[in-house]
Amino acid sequence: MLAKRIIPCLDVKDGLVVKGVQFRNHEIIGDIVPLAQRYADEGADELVFYDIAASSDGRVVDRSWVERIAQVIDIPFCVAGGIKTEQDAQTLLLMGADKLSINSPALSDPSLITRLTRQFGQQCVVIGIDSFYDDNTGLYQVHQFTGDEAKSAKTTWQTIDWVKEVQQRGAGEIVLNVMNQDGVRQGYDIEQLSMVREHCNIPLIASGGAGTMAHFKDVFEQADVDGALAASVFHKGIIDIQDLKSYLRSQNIAMRK
């Protein structure tokens, strides 16, 4: 039986793991490699590393940490941030990344999804979507360049339309980050995730809002996502991964031992 995945997310800025609240005020959590190793040892099923400044800065980033992570951990990991070309993708895959998550560059040039899928296979192309619920319009809207407060902007895409578009272009997985819930630990946005799930035939990962172990149970049971991503609850020691996985197993949710 295919297990549901627990995925700690490590936001990386200038080679360090950081955490912000609703994408702002980043505080330093620690060095990348020891944290990655610790999560792998504790039973994380996968890791995501978001180089949060890379897309918005437009700079060439030093990604030598990807190879250092690949050397020490024995679970899959995904690298996100600033991957704009086939060459970027090739470099990261050769360094040992298993998957690449594309967000802002895919919005700027959707054909990038198709090109990456054709060359490297659907399985390693993950699309990250930053979705914001606008109270005024009642619409779910995709945002771009969220790593930089000054450049972060609403796109013309509504979330469901973009979800359909990236699947048509061959994306292998979607990470849906609900911006309203990011870092506030009030629970995943079940309503939005369930709506996206109905239109998503590839693996769907929930991101944004995890605060308690019950939030994970709710998102797996109610939104039927394939994985749940979280950052602060793990970084701050609020939830222990082993405890979380045994709790979810006791709730009859398939978890890797």
Partner: peptide, 12 residues
């Protein structure tokens, strides 16, 4: 009807 592709994740 819930089968999703790719088959991605940990399986026995």
């Amino acid at each position: 009807h819930n089968l999703r592709l790719p088959h991605m994740g940990w399986n026995t």
